[in-house]
Design a protein around this nucleic acid. Structure first.
Lengths: 118, 118
DNA sequence: TGGGGTACTAACAAAAGTGTAAGTAATGGG
DNA sequence: CCCATTACTTACACTTTTGTTAGTACCCCA
């Protein structure tokens, strides 16, 4: 969320790169946890705590950060219920659901080539 | 290259994550330059210097690093000709070529949703 | 002898990403 | 009043990624 420094090549490269639809798309799902989270949410709505249980070592901080980023990018919808203790549910947007078949193919690619290579 | 520290959760999370075929695949093409490089190479062999000209602000160091990583991962084949000045050519392997249709779809996703969202 | 061309490499520095540890708000139940 | 529960937030530290700058080897050609 912090303001971004405009220094040097780092930022201008970023601008150049984001012009590409392909890298734009990959950046949305980049990072350590996003695709895993999206995969879980493909099965339906989940609460924060449920998601947390799905990943043995993720910290609450990381989960929050990733979910916020996904929300910002329009991939996840967040619903807060005014209860105590709080209840928050996360679900995929249509935009994210459109990744489904692509993920499927990427996963197949991974499965096939991992064995050949490692 | 450098030895990896085995400390803490950072590494164990990495291990956990790489178990997933999907994240395995995405990691291969993650980072700032890899997909751009692969895209260029889809058109055919290129020399180091030619690739460099394709990207206005990439540094030689970065290009080298990315090409080395792609080579390590079996996505790019590197051919050195014993000439002076040196000549080195890079081309995609079959494994990388298999990304073609997936990249196409990701790119379409990017094109479509970028406009809707930003 | 000295420069030009190509594909690098090395040492360092900045930036982003990820993890650690502790704390917060709110309310119902004992 | 105190504690448990849930979904966070904050301040800090570590690790990886990306960029900066300068230099290398090699041989040909003038």
């Amino acid at each position: 969320m912090g303001a971004r420094k405009q220094s040097s090549t780092y930022t201008s490269n970023e601008k150049y790169i984001v012009e590409c639809d392909l890298t734009y798309a990959v950046n949305k799902i980049g990072g350590r946890w996003k695709i895993l989270i999206i995969s879980k949410l493909e099965k339906g709505k989940m609460r924060f705590g449920e998601l947390k249980k799905e990943f043995p070592y993720i910290t609450e901080r990381m989960l929050t950060l990733q979910l916020r980023a996904l929300e910002q990018d329009g991939l996840v919808k967040r619903t807060v219920y005014a209860e105590v203790p709080p209840r928050v549910e996360y679900e995929l947007t249509e935009m994210a659901a459109a990744f489904g078949p692509i993920f499927q193919q990427l996963s197949e690619w991974g499965g096939k080539h991992r064995k050949l290579f490692n």
